[in-house]
Computed example of a mutant assay.
Amino acid sequence: MSDFDPNPTHRNFYGRRHGKTLRQSQKGYLADDLGTLRPRGITVQDNPDRTPIDPAAIFGDDRLIWLEIGFGGGEHMVAMAARYPQIGIIGCEPFINGVAMLLGKIRAAGVSNVSVHPGDARDLMDVLPDGAVARAFLNYPDPWPKARHHRRRFVTPEHLIPLHRVMAPGAEFRVATDIPDYMRQTLEEVPRAGFSLVHEGPEAWDDWHSTRYEQKALREGRVPHYATFRR
Rank of each mutant, 00 (worst) to 15 (best):
97 N>P: 12
100 A>M: 05
19 G>D: 12
34 L>S: 11
66 W>K: 02
96 I>L: 15
67 L>M: 06
25 S>I: 09
105 K>Y: 09
54 D>A: 04
52 P>K: 09
58 I>G: 00
75 E>M: 14
75 E>G: 07
90 I>R: 01
105 K>C: 00
25 S>F: 04
95 F>S: 01
88 G>I: 08
96 I>D: 00
21 T>P: 04
61 D>W: 08
34 L>C: 09
66 W>P: 01
104 G>R: 03
65 I>M: 11
18 H>V: 15
106 I>L: 12
52 P>N: 07
74 G>D: 06
44 V>H: 03
41 G>D: 11
91 G>Y: 10
81 A>I: 07
98 G>Y: 01
56 A>W: 09
61 D>I: 07
49 D>V: 07
62 D>M: 01
99 V>T: 05
67 L>S: 10
37 L>Y: 09
64 L>E: 14
24 Q>Y: 05
28 G>L: 14
19 G>Y: 06
58 I>C: 04
56 A>K: 03
69 I>Y: 06
52 P>T: 08
35 G>M: 08
19 G>L: 09
52 P>I: 09
44 V>Y: 14
48 P>K: 05
70 G>E: 06
66 W>D: 11
83 R>W: 07
58 I>H: 03
50 R>M: 11
66 W>S: 12
30 L>Y: 10
73 G>W: 02
40 R>V: 09
33 D>I: 01
35 G>Y: 10
39 P>A: 10
51 T>A: 11
69 I>M: 13
52 P>W: 11
66 W>R: 10
51 T>Q: 08
62 D>A: 14
105 K>T: 04
91 G>E: 07
73 G>K: 05
27 K>G: 13
59 F>V: 11
27 K>T: 05
77 M>R: 00
30 L>M: 03
85 P>Q: 07
72 G>K: 00
44 V>A: 12
26 Q>W: 12
72 G>N: 04
83 R>H: 14
79 A>E: 05
57 A>Y: 06
60 G>T: 07
97 N>G: 14
92 C>F: 04
20 K>Q: 12
95 F>N: 03
26 Q>L: 10
23 R>Q: 13
64 L>F: 08
54 D>I: 05
39 P>N: 05
57 A>I: 01
43 T>I: 01
45 Q>W: 14
101 M>D: 14
88 G>H: 06
68 E>T: 01
82 A>Q: 14
79 A>W: 04
51 T>L: 11
56 A>Y: 02
90 I>T: 14
57 A>M: 08
72 G>T: 07
26 Q>A: 15
33 D>S: 02
92 C>E: 12
99 V>E: 00
24 Q>C: 02
36 T>W: 06
79 A>N: 11
101 M>W: 10
74 G>S: 12
26 Q>S: 15
65 I>N: 02
18 H>I: 13
59 F>K: 10
23 R>G: 13
60 G>F: 09
105 K>L: 08
90 I>N: 00
73 G>I: 00
78 V>W: 02
34 L>M: 08
26 Q>G: 11
64 L>H: 09
32 D>W: 00
82 A>R: 14
